[in-house]
Amino acid sequence: MNGRAPLLSVRDLVVRYGAITALDGVSLEVGEGEIVAIIGPNGAGKSTLLSTVAGLRRPDAGGISFAGTPIAGGALEGTVRRGIAYVPEGRHVFAGLTVLENLELGATVRRDRAEARAHLESFLDAFPILRERAGEAAGRLSGGEQQMLVIARGLLSKPRLLMLDEPSLGLAPKIVDQVYELVTSLRRDGLTVLVVEQNAGRALAAADRTYVLNAGRVRLQGRSAELTGAPDFDAAYFGLKD
């Protein structure tokens, strides 16, 4: 964290769905240029955390600040304008639009049209399958191709923070390798990444730091290398300690 102010800072966040408390006072920080993972079992509150930062839900308590400015409330379309690209779980491609149109939508907030176009071309070069099928409906791509498409779409907004929710879900191991290769390659461009995963091994391997979430609370946190094989890791992950 280099002692600088973090890019994203979440303080004592509480989110409830009716009587159920999904997040029960979660705090975390993501520094500029870091890759941070949030892992935990199903229902731990991981996706709720990302979607709240993205502006899809309002916190019941606590605060979120991005680049030193509090965010919460305001129109949803402001999220990406702040510099946060959110790739939700389940590969939300615009299925009826073409692959190219999906990518163009990623650059909606760009003012530098020529650079955005070149940026888009660079993704078509990096993923030849996307160029090959640029004119086809995105819904006809395979799961892995759709995952690459939505990540590329998110990156085309030129975000400061990329938030990925379960990018490996439902994908073949080989495809998951490619997804994580892409994620780690982003570090070279100085991008900050916050990734939520159920696939703990993958996340720990890719992330600088990891938070273990269970039942709405952070149970364990630290450098990924140190968490791997830590004696209390399993207990934290499966919620055996409180």
């Binding site: 939300h92 615009f94 909606t108």
Partner: peptide, 12 residues
């Protein structure tokens, strides 16, 4: 197709 996702990519 998906109003929420459209807003998330910045469509007003």
């Amino acid at each position: 197709e998906d109003f929420t996702m459209a807003q998330l990519v910045g469509v007003r």
